[in-house]
């Protein structure tokens, strides 16, 4: 038994994850207005309250578990995945669902089978599909601007300043636009010059994606995550997109578009890498990441939803025990796989 330890703790791990999310959050705020900050605060407060209440109900020591910071990470990731202009109760219910059901009813920290943030997101997407599409329009395209007080009033009261219409504030996301336009039969080459698109992904959103990438690199450098899941995830997504794009560029978007839009980078570096619900062996992590990347491409291209990070992650969460069991690494001094299933 070691009498010494490197000073890592669960809370330091979680703090680093939050730190890695900062740049993306800042850019989000810059391009899409203050609504995202409101949802992060809402989600965090709800998460901490729910966590404390659940710890109390389960008669667990509150302090060490609250300080571990895992509830905050869940809240923050959830807020970043949800449309920020949705009414306040949407994010609150999503957070409650994530913490109470997905986390604590499954046994709490370390024991949950499904990624809590993605459970919260998916439940909301199924239950309140209309609200889940209230994505803010990027500032440079907006016909109207909502101040912080206006945002608060809209989120909590649903009222907009006189003369302002919701349509002026929200817009379908690039993935949504691509999807509907393709369904209308327009070739991709005509769709991507539309104003919502930027250089490679969505206008503004592609910068956020870049910030997620930067955060992910920081986490890698800090050894909070390993390269396996993000690399397998993004490589599979890009490869599939590349193949289909090469086959028919009119019907299938380019690989860089797939990487830069939607939840791809957030998912690859922050969500699929959730340690509790992800695969643990090196080989398992590769399989896990690749399968998520592939599923996302399938859902985006042929499925019923514009993006598929949440569903892909949840489906793969279910497979983790199986993946882990079959990918145990060769133990030192063992002849290759001699005694493995």
């Amino acid at each position: 038994m070691a009498y010494v330890s490197n000073s890592a703790s669960v809370s330091s791990v979680m703090l680093k994850v939050l730190f890695a999310l900062l740049p993306a959050t800042a850019i989000y705020q810059l391009y899409f207005g203050p609504a995202i900050l409101v949802s992060i605060v809402l989600a965090s407060v709800t998460a901490i309250g729910a966590e404390a209440a659940m710890l109390r109900l389960r008669k667990l020591p509150i302090k060490p578990f609250l300080l571990d910071g895992s509830a905050l990470v869940t809240a923050w990731l959830l807020a970043l995945s949800m449309p920020p202009l949705a009414p306040w109760w949407l994010i609150v219910i999503a957070t409650l669902f994530a913490i109470v059901v997905a986390k604590h009813l499954y046994g709490g920290l370390g024991n949950n089978l499904f990624n809590p943030a993605m459970v919260g997101y998916a439940v909301m997407l199924i239950s309140f599909p209309a609200h889940m599409t209230q994505w803010p329009v990027v500032d440079t395209l907006a016909h109207a601007h909502l101040s912080l007080s206006g945002t608060l009033r809209f989120i909590f009261g649903g009222e907009l300043p006189a003369g302002m219409k919701l349509d002026a504030l929200t817009l379908a996301t690039p993935l949504d636009t691509l999807r509907t336009q393709l369904l209308l039969g327009r070739p991709a080459s005509e769709i991507t010059p539309m104003p919502v698109f930027g250089y490679v992904g969505g206008k503004g959103a592609e910068l956020i994606a870049l910030a997620y990438l930067a955060g992910g690199v920081y986490l890698l450098q800090q050894r909070i995550i390993t390269w396996h899941i993000p690399v397998a995830f993004l490589a599979t997504l890009a490869l599939l997109a590349f193949g289909f794009h090469a086959y028919d560029a009119a019907r299938y978007a380019a690989p860089w578009f797939h990487l830069a839009t939607g939840g791809a980078l957030l998912g690859a570096f922050f969500i699929a890498t959730d340690p509790v619900t992800g695969a643990t062996t090196p080989k398992g992590k590769l399989i896990f990441g690749a399968a998520i990347g592939a599923l996302i491409y399938l859902i985006r291209t042929w499925g019923g939803y514009p993006d598929g990070v949440a569903f892909a992650v949840l489906i793969l969460n279910m497979c983790v025990p199986l993946i882990d069991a079959y990918t145990q690494p060769r133990v030192f001094g063992h002849v290759k796989d001699q005694d493995k299933p």
Binding site: A8, S9, V10, V13, P61, P64, F65, D68, S70, G108, L109, G110, N111, R223, I224, T226, P275, V276, G278, T280, T281
Partner: peptide
Amino acid sequence: PPALPCIRCTLCA
């Protein structure tokens, strides 16, 4: 400090 549950971070592995 008091132990927390395993978060399966695989740092040990």
